[in-house]
Computed example of a mutant assay.
Amino acid sequence: MTETQIPEDLRYTAEHEWVRRVGPSTVRIGVTDFAQNALNEVVFVQLPEVDSEVIEGESFAEIESHKSVSDIYGPLAGVVSAINDAVDAAPELVNSDPYGEGWLLEITVADDADLDASLAAMLDADGYREVIAD
């Protein structure tokens, strides 16, 4: 078994999502290497529409594998500003490149200060390692 990748430059949730700031008020979201390993072979990803609202802590998308269907929860509140059409066409990208081509969507928040606070409250790489070690 290969070691789980946990990039140091990302923020994480206990629900196994990663968050990367890609603009002043925009973040890109995906599922972690640990999560895609647990899911095994991803066969379908259901993403919300652009301009739909994401509520922190509530399910907004689903990932389906041969083993199960898993909800994706909003790591923060905002509006979907982009979805990764490549994952829609080739859901296996979530397995092969979870931190790159396998990203899911981008969310834009109304207030940069709120985004800073939300990111600061999320887990860093060391904190996420502790979550998956349990």
Results as ranks from 00 to 15, higher is better:
Leu93Trp: 13
Glu130Arg: 14
Gln36Glu: 02
His66Cys: 03
Glu15His: 06
Ser52His: 03
Ala14Trp: 11
Asp33Trp: 03
Val94Arg: 02
Tyr73Phe: 11
Leu76Phe: 01
Glu101Phe: 05
Ala14Ile: 12
Asp126His: 03
Asp111Ile: 10
Tyr99Gln: 09
Leu119Pro: 07
Leu104Gln: 04
Thr13Glu: 10
Gln5Phe: 01
Glu56Arg: 15
Ser70Tyr: 00
Gln46Asn: 13
Gly57Leu: 02
Asp134Gln: 13
Thr4Lys: 14
Ser59Ile: 05
Pro48Gly: 04
Val79Met: 03
Ile83Val: 12
Asp116Glu: 06
Gly57Phe: 03
Asp85Pro: 06
Leu93Val: 09
Asp114Tyr: 12
Glu64Ser: 07
Val69Cys: 12
Val27Trp: 01
Ile29Phe: 05
Ala113Lys: 14
Thr13Tyr: 08
Val19Ile: 13
Ser70Asn: 08
Ile55Asn: 07
Gly57Tyr: 04
Val45Asn: 06
Asp126Ala: 15
Val131Gly: 06
Glu17Val: 03
Phe34Ser: 11
Asn84Ile: 04
Ala120Gly: 01
Val131Gln: 10
Glu41Ile: 10
Ser65Phe: 02
Pro75Thr: 05
Ala89Gly: 12
Asp71Leu: 13
Ile63Cys: 08
Ile6Glu: 03
Glu53Gln: 13
Val19Arg: 12
Asp51Cys: 10
Thr108Lys: 10
Arg20Glu: 07
Leu123Tyr: 12
Gly100Tyr: 03
Asp116Arg: 11
Trp103Arg: 05
Glu8Ala: 15
Tyr12Glu: 07
Glu3Leu: 13
Tyr12Pro: 04
Ala61Asp: 09
Arg21Val: 07
Glu58Cys: 02
Ile83Tyr: 06
Gly78Leu: 14
Glu64Leu: 04
Asp97Glu: 14
Leu123Gln: 07
Thr108Asp: 10
Phe44Val: 10
Ser52Asn: 14
Ala117Arg: 02
Val27Phe: 06
Asn37Leu: 15
Trp103Met: 09
Phe34Tyr: 15
Leu115Val: 06
Thr4Phe: 09
Ile72Cys: 03
Asp88Arg: 15
Pro48Asp: 03
Leu47Phe: 00
Tyr12Asn: 09
Ile55Cys: 12
Val27Ile: 05
Glu101Val: 06
His16Ser: 11
Arg20Gln: 10
Ser70Gln: 05
Leu76Thr: 00
Leu123Pro: 00
Asn37Gly: 14
Pro48Cys: 02
Asp9Thr: 14
Ser70Gly: 03
Gly74Phe: 01
Val50Arg: 13
Met122Phe: 00
Tyr128His: 00
Ala121Glu: 01
Val43His: 05
Gly100Phe: 04
Val54Tyr: 00
Pro7Met: 15
Thr108Met: 08
Ala86Leu: 12
Ala90Phe: 08
Tyr99Met: 09
Gly127Gln: 04
Ser65Tyr: 00
Ile107Tyr: 00
Thr2Pro: 08
Leu104Trp: 02
Met1His: 13
Pro24Gly: 12
His16Tyr: 08
Gly127Cys: 12
Asn95Glu: 08
Ile6Pro: 00
Ile72Leu: 11
Pro98Ile: 00
Glu130Cys: 06
Val45Ile: 02
Thr4Ala: 11
Val87Leu: 03
Leu105Cys: 06
Arg28Gln: 10
Ser59Met: 14
Asn40Phe: 07
Pro91Leu: 02
Ala89Cys: 09
Leu39Ile: 12
Thr13Gly: 09
Lys67Trp: 01
Ser65Met: 01
Ile107Val: 08
Leu93Pro: 14
